[in-house]
Design a protein around this nucleic acid. Structure first.
Lengths: 192, 192
DNA sequence: CGTCTATTTGAATGTACTCAAAAGCGGTGG
DNA sequence: CCACCGCTTTTGAGTACATTCAAATAGACG
């Protein structure tokens, strides 16, 4: 249950066994079935989530009632509406399960306690935020400088595992194009 | 020289006179002429900048040698490549002056000292990072969900002061369109 | 097996782009 | 101070890419 998350963290900070068991004691387990919604626009994000198994999507619904996927997360990734979580203001983002998913959840008070007791974790979560920040910045640049098929190429290079699991319409939403366009791009792609 | 920055900070945290004078002692003043480059791709970002007067642009140069403006900053704003600054890794962004500009600069060691002596500032800079994060997120969503002229509308609503000062080509770069397209959008716009 | 949703394919449309050329504007040096 | 040069902005024409709408096909799930 907890090997994956401990391995994930150990890539950035070294923990003693005591640190590890304290950390684990703060986690809650949550299971979602396909299409279940984990968090909705308007609510304050209470948790950050680590994905043990499955796949989540974080998305936004615009004025025209269109969904736009901001981020996917699969096993060994973190997800959560960082902005709402950090500011404790109502979320503008929704999070839902793409597949049956098993999560480990940590809430804000638990995180504060963790920082008190094991300050190394401050570093870990700061790195998490920094990575989220740079990921967003890259997306801005790519969405402006690349054509749809270039964005698709980058996507499958970067996340080959996801491309196989995700329905086309979700990838299209992430890339900012229509499902029809992505279908055409893919068929072009196979010819080579 | 320092009224503006103190007022800026006081919107988020309350400082004593001693806090204020310590903070000011850590700042360096820097002046740039129009088009001067403040920071380049490849260098490690040493400073965060507060703009006392003038205007900066933060931009990225892609594989096709095209510039893409990520952010503008005018009086009473902060600028700087946060990612490079926080991680102390080489910057992917460039920063340059759009006009003659006067800056107050704080470097990383000074900031650490500040956190030690006046911990309230941790909160202030955390808020700065959070705002940068959400600003990026909004841009992603807008670049995907809005047409070029809708993005232009949002831009002038949000930053009316900038629209008047910035050359068209820079606004076009920020919006992710060609100068020709923005020129056409503007002429449409005036007809109403 | 049947229903519902996702994906593919086609045709017509629209939006923004490229390339080219003209007009406007600003700064510099004579 | 004015003339000139270079850069920015505008305008036009043709093109490319992605969209919309519609219909057909494929796939998933009960």
């Amino acid at each position: 249950m907890y090997e994956l998350i401990l391995k994930n963290i150990s890539r950035f900070i070294k923990l003693t066994e005591a640190d590890e068991s304290f950390f684990i004691s703060l986690l809650k387990v949550k299971k979602l079935r396909k299409k279940q919604v984990l968090q909705q626009e308007g609510q304050i994000a209470r948790y950050q989530y680590f994905i043990n198994k499955g796949c989540l999507r974080t998305y936004m619904i615009d004025d025209k009632a269109q969904e736009h996927i901001i981020q996917f997360a699969i096993e060994d990734w973190w997800a959560g509406d960082l902005y709402s979580f950090l500011t404790q203001t109502p979320a503008k983002l929704n999070i839902g399960a793409v597949e049956t998913t098993e999560l480990l959840c940590i809430d804000n008070p638990a995180l504060e306690m963790l920082y008190q007791k094991v300050p190394k974790f401050e570093r870990f979560f700061r790195l998490l935020i920094q990575n989220a920040y740079i990921a967003n910045q890259s997306r801005i640049i790519e969405s402006m400088s690349l054509t749809a098929d270039e964005r698709y190429c980058k996507f499958i290079e970067r996340y080959p595992a996801m491309e196989r699991r995700l329905p086309l319409k979700h990838i299209a939403s992430y890339l900012g194009i229509t499902p029809e366009s992505l279908s055409r791009i893919r068929s072009q792609y196979k010819k080579r």
